[in-house]
Design a protein around this nucleic acid. Structure first.
Lengths: 389, 389
DNA sequence: TAGAAATTGTTTGCGCCTGCAACATATCAG
DNA sequence: CTGATATGTTGCAGGCGCAAACAATTTCTA
């Protein structure tokens, strides 16, 4: 039901062009003409406008290699960037992310206990100043925040982030005041799904689910029809609390018999005799272990995981399921087991099209996802957002 | 990433205007100006074009009532309509649906055993001819089909419709050939969700879930971000096969412990001593029954239903959950019970925004949903679709 | 009852945007 | 060195929405 005036045509085309450069990387003007279907002359004018906005630069054509006049390459510029803020249980990360999902600078501040939400804005603002200085004082278009918890999409209120000890923290507005940039806040796993869909294991997919297992539990993010599925208020994707068994164990939210109460990283670490381990170390230990108790626990957890994945397949019919954190390790420890279990827990038709993969982006995933979130307004309306930055 | 040429501006604005008239009903030109934000003169020209396409007519302003020059009323026309085809276990319904979701004509053909898919095109074509004759030979823009089963969205192939006895039936292409109109096929519950979201209990909602209980089982449809969620291939929304218990009963698809295996209309009918009953009769019988066994069964089924609804809330965070068929009767038999159970099975934050309602559209729901599906192309690009009709 | 006020349709001219065609430019093949 | 090919550049035309001025129609007010 959106209407269009004539200016919006220009905005849409600038958006399409910038989005292509962002997602597909540097492209020649000829390639952009092909990708957008616009006329050569139009692309020329649009690229010129993007260059004036400091969003791209045109460089000399690389090695020509083919017949015909060489086409200049349109390269995303680093003069306008987004900020990413990732508060986690053990550290706060602030980063600058440029077009193309490139992490231009990063500052990780470790801590024993997470700082209260009220202290974050000042911390973030000073880290941001440092980062800007190190990277040539770029303009910051917006900031994206990846929060491990329930986030109200409308205003960036953090309803509940148990592992940070936050409750009803108006993070969005506090950060906007302290940093003087537009702030967008979202759930971490939702942003993980976005990141993997744009630059990772689900590249190019329009329907994907990202399921991540961390020390804090199991979170998920949904991509449906090419857009992140946030639900009516922003709380969608809480797969950790789906019902998987009649067991009496309760998860962190007090709900019994849920995925999170049955599938847990700590149980694996304990059986392996490890104190703490990142996902890679845990996976190595799982693969190296010959302990039958460990194998049984892996199977038990995979069994419960399959129940939730079956529900995901039946309900959402995704093209790709991306496993991250220790869930990827579980799958790697027993290759094919999950797929075999699924045959009995999901309908055949949606299973056919499903591909189960492991996350590709590693530790940068949330930074990239938060950057992508913040990039949304810039990609949708380059002139307005660049002028405001 | 869609680009715009200048013609697309016109198309978008025509689309916005026609969509408004379709959803909000007849509106004055002044109201359309306000609703779309377009200029008076522009709206005038656009309405003129829609009138030339036989999509709307302008009538004399009704009672003026207020100061100023009266504004002519833009009324959806019945010259261009969509066809709806609804094959069910006990009957096939063919109908003509106009703009505004008005059912202009309907032909219900009852049968004891459903006809094979191959017989449907001829049946449909002749019924359509009759209906067109009765309604002034309108042009048919497209046909929508609501199938109780798994439908591949890309080409309208019915993968599996157990209660019709169909498997891998190329319904879309067969109908296109027989009726010479574009055919769009979708799952019945998905279309139920669409219908309730446009004209029913979830009117105006962008995030809603429709859960329907029929003789054939439990189906669901999802509306996310204002659009039907079909998944990557079109199989999304199969809530009937979500895991709810460790029980060994298997549902029609052979999956054990699912919602559909535990929550069943036939069990209720048997306990009530009824042979068959529509949803209203079943609800009346439930309300009238003082049998303790019936009450216990209702509670048992509501308990399992709450598990799936909890999963829905955690995963999709809908604004409205619409219950149809005997699921509405279950809720009515024990008002508030479902909501009480949910408190323990879903997270508090998404539960806050949830409203559980019963379906409003009655027996027309699938006809309206199928009509709405077929209306999509016309609403998106009125000139092209109307020219093709 | 007549004029003022308010609201909306209608007409006209303008600015913006893209497409098209012709021309200019740069590379490759021989 | 020349022709073929591909692409940037420039000027023009067509389509579209907007703004402003004007016309039409109703209600309000004295």
């Amino acid at each position: 039901m959106e209407t269009s005036d004539k200016r919006s045509v220009r905005v849409r085309n600038l958006s399409a062009l910038l989005t292509t450069v962002h997602r597909a990387g540097s492209s020649s003007r000829a390639a952009l003409t092909l990708a957008t279907g616009l006329n050569r002359s139009t692309v020329g004018a649009l690229v010129g406008e993007l260059a004036e906005l400091d969003l791209v630069t045109e460089t000399q054509p690389a090695a020509a290699g083919s017949v015909g006049r060489p086409s200049p390459v349109v390269v995303p510029s680093d003069r306008v960037v987004t900020a990413a803020l990732v508060p986690e249980a053990d550290a706060v990360t602030v980063a600058l992310v440029g077009l193309g999902g490139r992490v231009l600078g990063r500052r990780r501040m470790a801590h024993d206990t997470p700082p209260p939400a009220a202290e974050l804005p000042a911390l973030t603002a000073s880290a941001l100043d440092e980062l800007r200085e190190q990277t040539g004082q770029p303009r910051i278009a917006a900031m994206g925040v990846a929060v491990p918890g329930l986030v109200r999409a409308s205003d960036g209120l953090v309803r509940l982030a148990p592992h940070l000890g936050w409750q009803d923290a108006p993070l969005g507005s506090m950060l906007e005041e302290a940093c003087a940039v537009p702030v967008l806040v979202a759930n971490d796993a939702t942003l993980g799904a976005v990141a993997e869909a744009v630059f990772g294991a689900a590249r190019g997919c329009t329907d994907a689910v990202y399921l991540n297992g961390g020390s804090s539990g199991i979170g998920g993010g949904i991509l449906a029809g090419g857009a992140p599925l946030t639900g009516s208020a922003g709380y969608a994707g809480e797969f950790g609390h789906t019902h998987v068994s009649g067991g009496g164990k309760r998860d962190a939210a007090g709900v019994p018999g849920t995925l999170e109460s049955e599938v847990s990283r700590d149980t694996l670490l304990r059986l392996l005799g490890l104190q703490s381990a990142d996902a890679d170390a845990l996976e190595a230990a799982l693969l190296a272990s010959g302990d039958l108790a460990v194998a049984a626990e892996v199977d038990r957890q995979l069994d419960h995981l399959a129940t939730t994945v079956g529900t995901i397949v039946n309900i959402l019919d995704p093209q790709v399921l991306v496993l991250g954190g220790f869930l990827a390790a579980l799958e790697a420890a027993r290759p094919g087991r999950l797929a075999a279990l699924l045959a009995d827990r999901a309908l055949g038709a949606p299973l056919e099209g499903l591909s189960v993969r492991r996350a590709e982006l590693g530790s940068d995933i949330l930074v990239i996802g938060a950057g992508e979130l913040a990039l949304g307004p810039l990609l949708a309306d380059p002139p307005s957002a660049a002028a405001a930055a």
